[in-house]
């Protein structure tokens, strides 16, 4: 294993950690808005780091660019859907949780 392999594995560990944290937030956070925060931020960062790891691992520059393109598309998807879900929740009268 080269030093690059170690870097890739380290990045994969960090990435997986963010996916785990995203799910923890999803389960623990008190309302749909905070859960959206957990999902959008943690999972997107997790995917970004994962894609960085796979791009470093890949021998082909074009494959790396395509991986980046995939991340950008997921970002667009997440950003639009989270906005729409939050708006749908507000319009259907879901009150944000407030610290008691």
């Amino acid at each position: 294993m080269s030093w690059m392999d170690f870097l890739v594995i380290a990045l994969l560990i960090v990435s997986t950690a963010f996916f785990i944290v995203g799910t923890i937030g999803l389960l623990r956070f008190p309302d749909v808005y905070s859960r959206l925060h957990a999902l959008t931020k943690a999972d997107n960062l997790g995917l970004g780091i994962l894609i960085l790891a796979l791009a470093l691992n890949s021998a082909s520059g074009l494959v790396s660019i395509r991986l980046m393109l995939t991340w950008v598309l997921v970002l667009v998807a997440t950003a639009t859907t989270s906005h729409l879900i939050a708006r749908a929740a507000r319009e259907s009268g879901v009150e944000p949780w407030v610290k008691p």
Partner: peptide
């Protein structure tokens, strides 16, 4: 949130 979770 399923859509979100599944997408990422």
């Amino acid at each position: 949130l399923a859509a979100q979770l599944f997408g990422t």
